[in-house]
Design a protein around this nucleic acid. Structure first.
Lengths: 137, 137
DNA sequence: GTTCATGCAAATCGTTTGCACAATG
DNA sequence: CATTGTGCAAACGATTTGCATGAAC
């Protein structure tokens, strides 16, 4: 669950430079495929493998973030009332929180932007109770 | 992006009933595969197809929720400073919000539970500015 | 009896990986 | 020149789907 920096140094590559530039130039949150098709014009035989490898490296370097829920596969929840989640960085568990829903958050969005927020989800990240108890690894 | 209820009525099935029961009986947020292996004992020739189909139906009925970021594929963000996201229910756009980070949220988790939260993410859902402007579809 | 749900297997889709060659430092 | 990054294609893992049969209404 933790991330090791890496032993050997990274070499530069035109492809990686451009992926980062392109990602910085947009407000959207592109998918690998979007980047691929944009860059295809400059690098006619760019491959998806290269895009993914570089995205991984950039993320490892902290230059970009991969957004998602942390998990590769779908998870399902029968608790349909609105609640927040805690995701343990150590064991990966997803835990329901008792925390009261803060409806003022939607209001803040609606006051400070032109978007109309109906609801929201929060995921907290950290160390869950049982991992904290059995100390650091 | 919207979800149509469905024309024809659903029929009951023992498999679907048990999937829902099982999901309700646990605090964890199971994956399809976890449900599959549990139910395999009762339905020796259960198939993954059935599990997925039923999870889809239950979610459509609002009896369960699929947790994730709304998107099937990874998205990448070059904006590495902490910020919240707005996801448009109409067009699917993911938009960065200017909203100030509320660090008291972590404190609330740390006070009300035994988990140690370092950080959190929020995704608001609703209708984005440009979809709101060009009215309902 | 008609239609929907199932089980099976093949298909699909996003992502990862092994390999031979090209580019980097 | 030692090693990393690339392109290609095959591999992978999660999820979806087409089809013939069985269950629900």
């Amino acid at each position: 669950m933790a991330k090791e920096p890496r032993a050997t140094p990274y070499r530069r590559s035109r492809q990686r430079d451009r992926i980062l530039e392109l990602l910085r130039s947009t407000e959207t949150h592109p998918t690998a495929n979007w980047l691929y098709s944009k860059l295809r014009k400059e690098f006619p035989d760019l491959s998806m493998g290269t895009v993914y490898r570089n995205l991984g490296i950039l993320a490892e370097q902290g230059l970009i973030k991969r957004i998602g829920f942390g998990s590769t596969f779908d998870r399902f929840d029968a608790n349909t009332k609105h609640h927040y989640h805690f995701i343990c960085e150590s064991c990966g568990a997803i835990i329901d929180l008792e925390l009261a829903i803060d409806n003022s958050l939607n209001d803040r969005v609606n006051r400070t932007s032109k978007h109309k927020a109906h609801t929201h989800d929060i995921q907290f990240q950290g160390i869950c109770e049982s991992c904290a108890t059995r100390k650091k690894t």
